[in-house]
Amino acid sequence: MTGTASARYSFGGDDHVFVELDGEMSLTANFKAMAITQALEERRLDGVIDICPANASYQIRFDPLVLPPTDLVELLKQIESDVGDATDIQLDTSIVEVPVLYNDPWTHETLMRFRTHHQTPDSTDLEYAAEINGYTSVDSFVEAHSGSPWFTSMVGFVAGLPFLFQMVPRERQLQVPKYPRPRTDTPKQAIGYGGCFTAIYSVRGAGGYQLFGITPAPIYDPTQQHPDFEDFMVFFKPGTIAKLEPIDRAAYDRIVEQVEARAFRFKQRPVRFSLGEFLNDPDAYNAGLLEVLRGS
């Protein structure tokens, strides 16, 4: 979990500033992106259109005739230096339990249909991921994938799709390459894995991440009919902490019934995240987070 690289500023045309905080992924870089974009948000500057924190970078879309580009970059550099390494900054967020049916029939059907796009035509995505990460069985791989919580390091690609980065030291990070040739189809709410990120596909569509399972819980609801979506159609926000909870088929079916009755709600609790405290002792900190989720 290093994060000492200096930021790189670049214009994306005349109306975007793109800032790469680190070429590598780390929770430190991500938290810095979150802290800087939040500080910018609070200034409510005229001319700022979109503020997008991302994994190890962030991007601002702005009107350069209202806010001169060089002024904006100067301000961002000022904020970057104020934020520093971000370890003393607290983030008010929530921890949420996401039920996951690993090795489910629907993503299985999809991944078998696109076997010729995959690295290993003769095994499943989970078997491949387990093997290249040195796990002796799919079960022990799933245990690692679902054991420690995940930090939402970016929301995007398509509406409401969270990129999740696991809250474990670098040497315990799971890494799996994407499909060499992307699929043209992925079921909605599939749990995918690419590079060092878990993604939950918010809508059905193309995708290149390895398919591990599926969640019965909607995470994007443009018509806002489900209880968790009364305020906004997107569930995950940058900074949301997720615990992936393995469930069996019976539990999956029960939740589907609740979803269909518009009665399903995620189990979630508010939590204040501190990067500094987490970095001190990740496992103890995570145990505390899970305590919050389970408790009271």
């Binding site: 680190d22 070429g23 992924m25 997008c52 190890a56 995007g156 670098r170 990070q173 590079g195």
Partner: peptide
Amino acid sequence: PPFGAGSDPSNIVDAPYPIGS
């Protein structure tokens, strides 16, 4: 490849895409 980027030379750690990029 930097950690998290992926092995193809055109891969990066997933980042925001400017409109028009």
